[in-house]
Amino acid sequence: MSQISCQGATSITSFAVFLCDKIEPALRKAVFERMAKHIAEDMKNQFPDFRGNRANLEVCILRYLAEQENFDDFKKYLTSPKQFFEEYIERRVKSHLDGNGRLKEFLDSSLNVLYGNILPAVSLSTKIVKDRKDREDKISLWLDEFCRELAEVINLPRSELKGIEHQEVTDIEFLSSAMAKSLTDLRNRLMKELADADLSSFSRQPHTILAEHFSGCWEKCRFCGAVCSNTMQNHDGDHQVVFHRPQALTGFKWHGTDHLVIDICSSLVASDCTFRFHDDQQWTPYRTYRDAGPPVSTWRILPDSSMQAYWKWFVSHFRTQLEDLYNKKFQGKGEIPEAWQRITKQEALSELDRL
């Protein structure tokens, strides 16, 4: 580590420059960490999507999917829900920040707040140390106090400052003004450097922080693909959902036909129907579905014939795409009821919002 050997004012100035060089990477890192958290909080405040729990976010995503009417997006949501949630959040964050100077606002705000915490640390350390007649190693004591004051603001390890702790700086008050000057230079330098920052500059992305707020169990029902609604990952007890979906969404068909199953799991467990996942597997009555073992045995599926209008609309609207995707047909026992075909998108969304 380089040593500072010059004396007097030059020594103090060199000390301040050296210390600010050490502060710079820690401050830069802290700026981005603070910005990421601030942006995530701002998204929660600004958008209804992110104000509630994951169930609320899912309603917003289903609304978005219906409005876009893009089957490929639906397919990604149905097959990889966790990935789709994360991409949706990332897209909303980027859209919020792009093109309106908002990222620069967050940058300026974060840098100013952190800078505003460092300056008082300089003053307080100076105040504590300047009248200590009992200590000759005032600069070492000043560094102790300075690092302690900054501990909650930036990560500046005291051990990295060993090379300057033995400097004979007697004019502590001049040190304070020299630090103020060097910190102003540092702030201006960072402001200029970070003016062109974008989301790629973050080590921890704002959308990642936001996504963590909506983490939980992502286990999918083996029959219909609905995602477990438990808000805890690796939770105790069974997986469950409020509403199951038509099994056609995962390509289930009636045995011996190419007819898709439009029934939902929660109505089938009250029926006399049986199922199997592979040709070599035994048939299992839906009533005793747990006998089939994992993964279905880890689910709690209560008898319930309630089906969301949303999925009735979806099946009717994307009938052809679903048939092409699974190379099966909505015929026979899988014939789409006429009543489903009369459901409008707005009716489906209105029910979704009420639920």
Rank of each mutant, 00 (worst) to 15 (best):
R63I: 12
R135Q: 09
E212F: 09
E323Q: 10
Y77P: 06
I301L: 07
N45E: 13
T257I: 05
Y64Q: 10
E24F: 03
N188T: 14
F71V: 08
F243M: 09
V261F: 06
T274C: 13
G334P: 06
G225V: 00
H239F: 06
N100D: 08
N234S: 09
L352K: 02
G52N: 02
C6G: 10
K127Q: 11
S110N: 02
D291H: 12
N234V: 11
P295Y: 03
G216V: 04
H259T: 02
L249T: 08
L194D: 00
F318T: 07
K312G: 06
V122R: 01
Y64W: 12
D185P: 05
D72F: 08
N112M: 14
C20V: 06
C273P: 00
D238W: 08
E351V: 02
G334C: 03
H235S: 05
D258E: 10
V93Y: 00
N56F: 08
L141K: 07
G225W: 05
N53R: 04
D73Y: 12
V296C: 13
L183E: 03
H259V: 01
S271R: 07
I301S: 03
V227W: 05
C20L: 02
L210D: 01
R290V: 14
H38T: 13
D238F: 15
M232V: 12
E86K: 12
L352E: 06
E160I: 05
E347C: 08
V242R: 15
I164W: 05
H213C: 08
C20W: 07
N327Y: 09
I301K: 00
P25V: 01
A16I: 03
P303F: 11
E86R: 12
H244V: 04
S14P: 00
K82M: 12
R287W: 03
E338S: 14
H207K: 00
K333D: 13
R28Y: 08
K345Y: 11
A178M: 07
M35E: 01
K312P: 09
A348R: 07
K75E: 15
M179N: 02
Q46P: 04
L161P: 14
D21A: 15
Q331F: 13
G332H: 05
Q281K: 15
F277C: 10
R290L: 11
H317R: 12
W254I: 00
S215I: 01
R34H: 13
L325G: 04
Y286T: 04
R51M: 09
D131F: 14
Q321D: 14
E351N: 09
E58A: 02
E351C: 06
